[in-house]
Simulated assay, not measured.
Amino acid sequence: MTPEQVIEHREALNRKRRSPLFGLITGRPDRGARITTHTVDLPGRQLGVRVYRPERGGSALPLIVAFHGGGFINGTPDQDDWLLSYLAARCPAVVVSVDYRLAPEHLLPAAVEDAYDALPRLIEQAGPWGADPARTVALGSSAGATLAALTAIRAAELGQPVRAQILINPQLDWTDRVFRYPSFTENADAPTATPANCRAVQRIAFPSSFDARTMSPLRLENLAGTAPALIQAAGLDTLEDQAPAYADRLRQAGVDVTLTRYSTATHAFLSMPRLVPAARPARAEMLAYLRSHLLERSETATRDR
């Protein structure tokens, strides 16, 4: 595909995603959440954000900063409405999904720079949305999980208040080694994240001579101090092996990790809840993880005061 064809395909996919028929696949937003769109000012640019807040309001709620999937060439925040509205309404929490820049218009590392710059900006303006910046979570799926993992690593280095990370069918290795994991061959016939898709992303999104190690959490050396992680692997995913590999790396660095494998799930299964039954237990696990983790930290902070 040419860059122009990639853009046309993305626009067509976005139109389909917003159609009533596509809603039968992606699921409906939770009625207990209010969804609004905003912009945030970053150095030299503005980004759109999709904000999910519980209808019943509230203050000092956890802040979940989310990154959608799509291989850095596709995807929009609204593809995760079914998941993110549920977390906002049921946790409850303020969820902000970042509409980061995509290739081929913006080659990597543009998306990574957006994630790095968006996190502190969203933490700064969390108050007006009723969020507690001291209880921030990074969440992402697929390529979005790359951004969530990278922001969690950077937050540990800079002392930013990321308290947990949730990585859904994550891609965590963007080097050529991605093609050598056993799951890449074993799940080559999977309907999503096909080998052809994975190779196309590298060709379309990476500039020439780009060092993919710099944005591959699995290839980074220092993971110490990174926030505790919930990692959800899909058993029918070409990228499946990256999840346990990264869980091992985090544990070696002293990070608490919960790794769950959904054996009948395909890549991007949380965006297709009506087609993949595993989406509902995975969403429930996320909610339980957030509640237990954030409640525990909140109570500890109260006792310390």
Rank of each mutant, 00 (worst) to 15 (best):
2 T>L: 02
5 Q>A: 13
5 Q>G: 01
6 V>S: 00
16 K>N: 13
18 R>H: 09
25 I>A: 15
26 T>E: 13
32 G>Y: 10
34 R>E: 15
38 H>N: 08
44 G>K: 02
44 G>C: 06
45 R>W: 04
45 R>D: 02
63 L>A: 09
65 V>P: 06
66 A>N: 12
72 F>T: 02
75 G>N: 03
75 G>S: 03
75 G>I: 01
78 D>A: 04
79 Q>F: 04
82 W>T: 06
85 S>G: 11
88 A>F: 01
90 R>T: 15
91 C>S: 13
96 V>H: 02
99 D>F: 07
113 E>N: 14
117 D>A: 15
121 R>W: 00
121 R>H: 06
125 Q>S: 12
126 A>G: 10
129 W>K: 09
133 P>H: 05
133 P>N: 07
140 G>Y: 01
144 G>W: 01
144 G>A: 11
149 A>M: 03
149 A>Q: 03
155 A>E: 03
155 A>M: 03
157 E>Y: 05
159 G>I: 00
159 G>H: 01
161 P>S: 08
161 P>A: 08
166 I>E: 13
168 I>W: 09
171 Q>A: 14
172 L>P: 05
175 T>G: 09
180 R>L: 14
181 Y>T: 04
182 P>C: 09
182 P>E: 06
184 F>I: 10
186 E>C: 02
189 D>P: 00
192 T>V: 15
196 A>L: 13
198 C>H: 09
199 R>A: 05
201 V>A: 09
215 M>D: 05
217 P>Q: 06
217 P>I: 04
219 R>M: 12
222 N>S: 12
233 A>D: 08
235 G>A: 11
237 D>S: 02
239 L>R: 01
240 E>K: 10
243 A>C: 07
246 Y>S: 07
248 D>V: 09
251 R>C: 11
251 R>W: 07
256 D>E: 15
256 D>M: 07
257 V>F: 10
260 T>C: 13
264 T>Q: 14
271 S>N: 14
273 P>G: 07
274 R>S: 15
275 L>M: 15
278 A>Y: 08
281 P>F: 07
285 E>C: 01
287 L>H: 12
288 A>W: 07
288 A>H: 06
290 L>F: 06
292 S>K: 11
301 A>W: 06
302 T>H: 02
302 T>N: 03
304 D>P: 00
304 D>W: 09
304 D>F: 09
305 R>N: 14
